[in-house]
Simulated assay, not measured.
Amino acid sequence: MPTLTTTDALAAFCARAAAHDYVTVDTEFLRERTYYAKLCLVQLAVPGDGPEDAVLVDPLVEGLDLSPLWALMADEGVTKVFHAARQDLEIFWTDGSVIPAPLFDTQVAAMVCGFGEQVGYETLVRKIAKGSVDKSSRFTDWSRRPLSDAQKRYALADVTHLRVVYDSLREQLARNGRTAWLEEEMAVLRDPATYEVQPEDAWKRLKMRNPTPRFVAVAAELAAFREHHAQTRNVPRSRVFKDDALLELASNKPKDDAELGKSRLLLREARKGDVAKGILEAVARAEAVPKESLPKPPRPKARDQINAALADLLRVLLKAKAEEAGVAQKLIATASDLDDIAAGARDGDWNRGWRAEVFGADALRLCEGRIALACEGHKVRIVPL
């Protein structure tokens, strides 16, 4: 089980990989105690079945320069194959300022090919590669050295079986004429904005029920402070203070240390020092915003705006069209999308690109009364009106 621990060895493998059409990639990392993931291991494999065709890269070795790896990831002549790539790509963007391209995500490809929603790697290995993955090292501390042989075997399996999975899915997409569908999905993963959280936008992740404009202003300032504090100190945002504490603070709006100390949900460490100071300053900034300049709260979707019967018909249509196309339903449209359509929405991801072809156009025709749904045995068919 080759483990690359020098820059020269990594450069040599990456030079070999650049001569192939693709390279399979995976990472092992830790994130429980940091804001940014700590890269602990990189697994790479090229086509072939020799011991030199799949390697581990140990980024924790002192003096190892990952520049050859970043260069390979940026090489447009080599497709980078991942399974469930989002977290891996975030690490590559954060650590190496590179997003692998061209990119092929086997989890997304499997959804396009009808393997279900968010299908796991083990499932694809079993169904396509007719193999199995040893799960014994799944929950392990990848930062500890030395790595055991069991850990190394587990890590390499994540890229060796992936070669067979990739070849199969790529061929199936080509047969079905859906390679372009996958390319549409990869565009989001290739966008650096996918992996960057701007502190001023952090409040948008909060779940707020019927908030007032002032509440939103305070919550936005608190969320921005927390995000900036977590990023600059590389600690999880929940270590600064949790969402429930943030919402409590936005409601109570403490003005001094005494009022801050009355919080039920704020951890003891957050009631002093830089965090306490940051909280009070954030609240003060929000309180100083003139009424006419307060942000508008996100408007909840009024249930009475949703045509419930139409929403149910759209669910039937989505299920029928997904089965017909052999594509996972959630990849086409979400339950929230269907409610939006039933409430009058006429634009969204569900009606762009290949989704419009598979579902969006018929969804609009159903809303406009130009088609009906009918049962034919165990199938649902579309009836023009």
Rank of each mutant, 00 (worst) to 15 (best):
T334F: 06
K207G: 14
R303F: 09
L162Y: 02
R226G: 10
A101N: 10
I91Y: 00
V383G: 00
L222A: 02
E117C: 09
A308N: 11
K330N: 15
L41A: 03
E200G: 12
L338W: 01
D191P: 01
I382S: 10
D95P: 10
A363Y: 02
H228T: 15
V358G: 05
G177I: 02
L206P: 11
R170N: 14
C113M: 10
M1I: 03
L385Q: 12
A101L: 02
K296V: 15
P384W: 03
F115R: 13
R178E: 01
H161P: 11
A361M: 03
D312H: 14
A356L: 13
R370M: 06
A223L: 11
R233I: 10
E368V: 04
L206C: 06
D149Y: 06
L222V: 12
R153Y: 09
G50M: 01
V98P: 03
V275P: 03
F215D: 07
F359L: 12
R271G: 06
V78P: 02
L267R: 15
C113N: 07
L249R: 03
K130A: 13
R239T: 14
T7W: 11
Q43D: 08
F82T: 00
T232A: 11
R175V: 15
E122K: 15
L265H: 05
R209S: 14
Q118Y: 02
A361Y: 09
K207F: 10
R303M: 13
L66P: 13
L266Y: 06
V164H: 11
D141G: 01
L64V: 15
M73Y: 12
Y195F: 12
P51I: 13
